[in-house]
């Protein structure tokens, strides 16, 4: 495992910590898209079905359990916690799940490595993760006052994807025969979705302004 992969995973973990900090400590999920969080829970549930059958390392197994556990915990907080759920911007978070889930599933049936249930679901999870941030980005654009934790959460998620791209470049040059086209192309699409957000995040940070996205 190279440094970019490790930093990518740690950035991903940190993004979850930041979000849980906001939800659990501040008891607010304002500006957070439940749609995106539900899509992430679905991503991990379909990708990590191999958790008991396919052992890579203790590190991988522990991380999988953390991402599965935290994603469902976040969804539970936003839907059921009596204080947190009242801070959810339901009227603004209007993106429809099926608009992302159905095309991703269709694509997974068409473009995959093997036609087995586990393989199709794994491929589906890769495609879905690439676009799962979409409802969150739409919600951010509609939010007038984006708080620091929400802005940092999305920034960390984008940074995690960017670090994974660097990880793949290193692996391509250091591991013989290493290639994974489905993951690479989805990863590039996913990172590109953050480009606009990054631009405004850095611009506002450099000007010492509060983060705001043009609508």
């Amino acid at each position: 495992m190279n440094i970019f992969r490790l930093c990518g995973d740690m950035t991903h973990l940190l993004s979850v910590v930041v979000l849980l900090l906001k939800i659990h400590t501040i008891k607010s999920c304002a500006g957070i898209s439940l749609k995106t969080q539900e899509l992430y829970a679905l991503v991990f549930a379909t990708r990590y079905l191999d958790i008991f059958t396919h052992h890579v390392s203790l590190y991988n197994t522990v991380m999988k359990i953390i991402f599965l556990g935290t994603s469902f915990t976040i969804v539970w907080y936003m839907r059921h916690h009596k204080v947190v759920r009242q801070t959810y911007d339901k009227e603004q978070d209007t993106f429809k799940h099926y608009m992302l889930i159905i095309p991703c599933f269709a694509l997974a049936l068409l473009i995959k490595t093997k036609f087995t249930p586990l393989e199709v679901l794994w491929t589906f999870s890769i495609y879905l993760e690439a676009v799962a941030i979409f409802p969150q980005l739409v919600l951010l654009q509609r939010t007038k006052n984006i708080d620091n934790l929400t802005g940092n959460y999305v920034f960390l998620l984008g940074a995690y994807r960017g670090l994974y791209l660097l990880n793949w470049i290193v692996r391509y040059f250091t591991e013989k025969g290493y290639r994974q086209w489905i993951t690479w192309i989805s990863g590039i699409v996913q990172t590109a979705l953050y480009a606009d957000f990054f631009y405004y995040y850095i611009k506002c940070w450099r000007n010492n302004e509060k983060l705001h996205l043009p609508s």
Partner: peptide, 10 residues
Amino acid sequence: PDDEDEKDEL
């Protein structure tokens, strides 16, 4: 090893 089958990333 074929990395498409390895799935060693998260």
